[in-house]
Amino acid sequence: MSRPAFSLGKDLVGLEDLSAEQIRSILDTAEPFKEVSERRIKKVPVLRGKTIVNLFMEPSTRTRISFEFAEKRLSADTVNIGATESSVVKGETLVDTARNLEAMRIDMVVIRHGSSGAAGFLADRIPSNVVNAGDGSHEHPTQALLDLLTIRDKLERIEGLKVCIVGDILHSRVARSNIFGLLKLGAEVGVCGPMTLLPLGIDALGVKVFRRVEEAIEWADVLNVLRLQLERMKGGFVPSLREYNRVYGVSTRRLEKAPRDLLVLHPGPMNRGVEIDSDVADGPQSVILKQVTNGVAVRMAVLYLLAGGVPEKAEAAKTGGGVE
């Protein structure tokens, strides 16, 4: 009677590793989970008795809270560990931290880490499920999944849409995950930003490059506006925030010139008046808060699918995993 959903395997490290079917399966699974958050008792017993550790080695509010809500609404027990309160400051390695947690019999680790590849590294070394909540400038798969879900909700498809990611593409794991996900689901992807913030050879991924935000707006159906990380200014990537806003800021004045109504996404936290103007962020084309709501549903779907797991793989990691 119940047909199985596509298995995700043991871990979710990035969208680069997933097939279009697997991505669609996550988005489809997220649909019924939206409803759980609308209930009076916002809880289903799916992960009852499972212990999840949120290992956040980098500051994060939205993603951590979103994961925590998702976990709690699935009835899991959760523990949060931040960089400052962990033994990392005492010199413990990531693998040792994880092994110590495993010795306390945990089932899943949600990891945010400053180093690219940290999630995959951990996934290969521990039998628990590992979910990447952002690793360096590598990937942030659940953010891209919630972006995809929000676009699909509003425009009822992904295939054939033109989606432009605006801002700091160079340092952005959100951009990378979005590019992989969008291309796999058949969208056209553009990127737009100052040359200093576009990685060399980005067009090799199959994306269009726009130098001017006006051209991007003219081309796109959807704009995904990324946060300009303020520390980039110190790195000399942009001359000043004011100049960035003048040249790349998404404003009503610029959107009005678009040939069609654009959908505007932003993964947060926003710098109002830098990459996005307040009247756009709060305007009718913005789906920024919808993204936040969908984030919980998408993360519930991912946790649900991963907890089904691939037991053999977990077993293999336990016995054959490398020692660092």
Binding site: R3, P4, P32, E35, A307
Partner: peptide, 23 residues
């Protein structure tokens, strides 16, 4: 009613069943 999330065999069966909507 979709009862998938309340099944008592979720921990023991293999791949996750598709979840339907409860309305």
């Amino acid at each position: 009613l979709d009862i998938t999330l309340y099944r008592d065999d979720l921990a023991t069966i293999g791949p996750r069943p598709v979840v339907g909507e409860s309305n």
